[in-house]
Simulated assay, not measured.
Amino acid sequence: MNTLNTIVLTEGSQPPKKPPTEELSQIWKSLIKFGTKLKLERKCYLFRAGEHNKHVYISLSGYLMLTKNKTLLDIVEPGQSLGAALLNSGNSIQTYPVSAMSIDQSEVLQLSAEVAFDLMNSNPLVNEYFIRQFKDRMSYLQICRSIESLPVTNRVAFFLLQKKSLLKNTTITRKMIAQAVNTTQETVIRTLANFEKQKIIEYAGRKIILIDSSHLEKLCL
């Protein structure tokens, strides 16, 4: 079966009672009261650029890629949201500017755009969460754009520092890093090999372990 574009409802569709991150603990009951849990198979589109923004999502498990014109913009981790930035009004019709696709088997909490809009207006903590998510993602993307002209070594260093929580997951491939920093997979492999020789990183199987973050930080200045 081709899993691309396949979204599978989990049994009962009931969201977990425990939030994926501590950040969501104070608002989780409000969110799951109206939310549905969706399970995505590997390489499954949650939504595509240009589709109407009918839902807002929060990642529960697994990882999703945000892409536009085949460019990898960001990798969404558990506890992070997708789609809420487009909610200007409860009845507004807007489209997703990017596509979201699961990297591995993933689960998300789905809220209708109308419900998410109402929650943002009635619950200050919900509003703060979605605003913080938007600001963090915009800040990351703006920095990515600002370092586009820097050498690949610097761009890879930035990715490793910003996404260090992802490095323990073997589904984050060298190809994905290359897409994120706008270079080739071969260049990323060479860059990581140089970092290993300099004892900046080491490997545990396919996992990357940072052992000299201060050196990477200097490359990002």
Score class of each variant (00 low, 15 high):
Thr6Gln: 12
Val8Phe: 14
Ser13Val: 11
Gln14Val: 11
Pro15Thr: 01
Lys17Cys: 09
Thr21Arg: 10
Glu23Pro: 04
Ser25Trp: 01
Trp28Gln: 07
Ser30Gly: 09
Leu31Trp: 07
Ile32Met: 07
Gly35Pro: 06
Lys37Leu: 12
Arg42Leu: 11
Cys44Val: 06
Leu46Lys: 05
Gly50Leu: 10
Glu51Ile: 05
Asn53Ala: 14
Val56Leu: 08
Tyr57Val: 06
Leu64Lys: 05
Glu77Ile: 10
Gly79Gln: 07
Gln80Asn: 14
Ser81Tyr: 05
Ser81Ala: 13
Gly90Gln: 15
Tyr96His: 11
Pro97Val: 08
Val98Asp: 11
Ala100Ser: 14
Met101Cys: 09
Ile103Trp: 01
Leu109His: 04
Leu109Glu: 06
Gln110Ser: 12
Ala113Gly: 05
Phe117Cys: 02
Leu119Ala: 02
Asn123Arg: 05
Asn127Pro: 01
Asn127Asp: 05
Phe130Leu: 07
Met138His: 07
Ser139Lys: 09
Ile143Ser: 06
Ser146Asp: 13
Leu150Gln: 09
Pro151Asn: 02
Val152Pro: 00
Gln162Gly: 09
Lys163Val: 00
Asn169Gly: 09
Thr170Ser: 13
Ile172Trp: 00
Ile172Glu: 00
Thr173Lys: 02
Arg174Trp: 01
Gln179Trp: 14
Ala180Asn: 15
Gln185Met: 11
Val188Gly: 06
Ile189Trp: 04
Ala193Gln: 08
Phe195Cys: 03
Phe195Ile: 04
Glu196Gln: 11
Lys197Cys: 05
Lys197Trp: 01
Ile200Cys: 02
Ile201Phe: 00
Gly205Ala: 00
Arg206Met: 10
Arg206Lys: 15
Ile211Phe: 00
Leu219Tyr: 05
Cys220Pro: 03
Cys220Gln: 10
